[in-house]
Design a protein around this nucleic acid. Structure first.
Lengths: 338, 338
DNA sequence: AATGATCGCTCAAACGATTGCTTGAACAAA
DNA sequence: TTTGTTCAAGCAATCGTTTGAGCGATCATT
């Protein structure tokens, strides 16, 4: 026997009809709308709603309330674990609050404005997390002409507020770790073009080195990729005063550095110590990389919390997540060769 | 000077008013609705639409047309690269067709029915990709009571059609690779509980071994995790007729096996050869794992294509992606010890 | 000149909810 | 009995589209 009305597809009207009241009454009861309803009417409505397994039609509700219950996130590439984890954290928080997340991959920065418009103007998302470098003029124009609550994550921008971590502290921690292991000549492999996060990590790193009275840090930068790390380490190893301990901007760069060391016959950690960042997964490198863990999921979640507040009308504000960077000791750091 | 009407928020009514026609005319012009309109009227409408940067309000349109232009995907965990890549492929294809993807992470299988209902009954997605094991009775009931075009990806199910690859061919390829390297005693580490994909890979693997007249393959299974692979390899190494070459169900299992070999003092590949699967990222294991590449992104994309066809009314059908499995030679396979 | 066809557009009803404004009845106070 | 309140619920507009039906005006046909 087929159910008369397919469960889950019932509308307010259906419920109203069988209970014998107006749809507005049903709506008010089901939404706890401040209205007085006789207990028996209320109960009848609730019973009928659960009998037919009523689910509000999100489209209709959203059209009326002018809110979609959807948040967007703009990111370069979901297969990059850094972004996957950020999204992961954002989605957990979004789900708690009843939001869904619309993900837009923006492989090419030049299309980010178009992606923005699609999410904001057409899909009418309630808020947006931006995890791409967004400072193109089209993007700025898009945001200004079609403002929507938005927050940057793990990067700063002149056109909005950010959720970040204390990158400088990460840099300091990396330097301390290497210095404590006994290293006296340190190197830093950063991002080129220099990202805000890279600059802050570098500052923290250099600060500690100088405070410890160490000779100048060798600073090298390359594209944020394995290739970039690979090439950068080669150049580092060509330095006259070759460092014995290096801090790589992130995991990709660190992995590339490891590969370069291998082809040069430089043993890690015997000849060279390496500290990297973002490396939850770096445990499977050879050797496993000692890494500073960035709370990416927390950043994603916090970004959603910020968006919710902004949607409620609170002023945007910068957030620095106050989780001290955590170092995971693995096998890529040892005392320097003597 | 502020723009009079915030660009991008203009409605059909706005355009209709300034051009001096009815909204229905505007709608028909902008949608190429089969209607005859004077060229100058048409042009005026188009001009005005682009002047105010008109974007259709997706909610309103969808409410009316009863289609949301959204597809869903149910998966266990986005931070698992296997799923991230599948989603990646699906999103690329979805974007081409103007769909957005709603991702639902279902950490606990028991909540998958609830996630289904939220996407299908409330958000009213047009189609769903299922990448979780979905055979719980609640899930079956949810699908039956609220049917929506759906397709499983990389797994088979009694309650729908699938997009898969030729897993048996992967198993055959793994066996051939080890046999060609000179191995005569082979092992297989599968999934427990046995997944459909695991079974097929095992069949292909065993088939080739038997055809080559090799002694019985040692078959071991464990949970699909690094721990599972770790424990399984330990048990394999305890066998009287210890294999010299093993095929691990997937990358996680392979990585666990590598770890077990290391603690046992079994050198890879000198003492033991390992072939794994899904291992785009396995290049950074120690040693880098020789792996069979699964076209996950293609599977995701193809799933979307299937959904589109089903939404158009075509009958669901099983799809086996006909890309022959590809082996990437790295450093975990060598001739057996003598 | 009457008829019919075509053109170019308008009308109005949806889609499924939300929400401010009425309203009829019951009841209390005067 | 009249008046004023409160209760319980209904009415109707609205969100921004889409879409079939309708309808004057023009033009061709007989």
């Amino acid at each position: 026997m087929k159910p008369i009305s397919p469960p889950g597809r019932a509308t307010l009207k259906d419920i109203a009809r069988t209970v014998g009241v107006d749809v507005s009454t049903v709506s008010k009861v089901l939404n706890d709308g401040g209205i007085s309803v006789r207990p028996q009417t209320r109960q009848a409505i609730i019973d009928e709603a659960s009998r037919v397994n009523y689910r509000p039609h999100a489209l209709a509700r959203n059209l009326r309330t002018q809110r979609t219950g959807a948040l967007g996130i703009l990111l370069p590439d979901l297969t990059n674990p850094i972004y996957a984890e950020t999204v992961h954290g954002a989605m957990r928080q979004a789900e708690r609050s009843g939001y869904v997340m619309l993900i837009a991959e923006v492989a090419d920065e030049r299309t980010s404005a178009a992606a923005y418009m699609r999410l904001v103007s057409e899909r009418r998302i309630d808020g947006l997390i931006i995890a791409v470098s967004a400072e193109t003029s089209e993007m700025i124009a898009a945001i200004e002409n079609n403002p929507v609550p938005h927050v940057f994550v793990n990067r700063r921008s002149s056109i909005g507020r950010s959720v970040t971590v204390d990158d400088q502290a990460s840099g300091r921690l990396a330097a301390q770790t290497l210095i404590e292991a006994g290293h006296r000549r340190l190197g830093f492999i950063g991002a080129l073009p220099e990202l805000d996060t890279s600059r802050r990590r570098r500052h923290g790193f250099v600060e500690v080195c100088q405070a410890a009275g160490l000779p100048a840090v060798v600073e090298i930068a390359g594209p944020v990729s394995r290739r970039g790390g690979y090439d950068a380490l080669h150049r580092l190893l060509d330095e006259a005063q070759r460092p014995t301990g290096v801090f790589a901007f992130n995991m990709l760069v660190g992995i590339g550095a490891l590969a370069a060391a291998r082809v040069r016959g430089v043993r890690v950690p015997d000849d060279l110590s390496v500290v990297t960042l973002d490396g939850e997964d770096a445990i499977f490198t050879a050797p496993p990389l000692t890494a500073i863990i960035t709370p990416l999921a927390e950043m994603g979640a916090r970004a959603v919390v910020e968006l919710e507040a902004m949607i409620q009308g609170r002023e945007p504000q910068d957030v620095v997540i106050n989780i001290p960077p955590k170092l995971v000791y693995r096998e890529s750091v040892a005392p320097p060769p003597r």
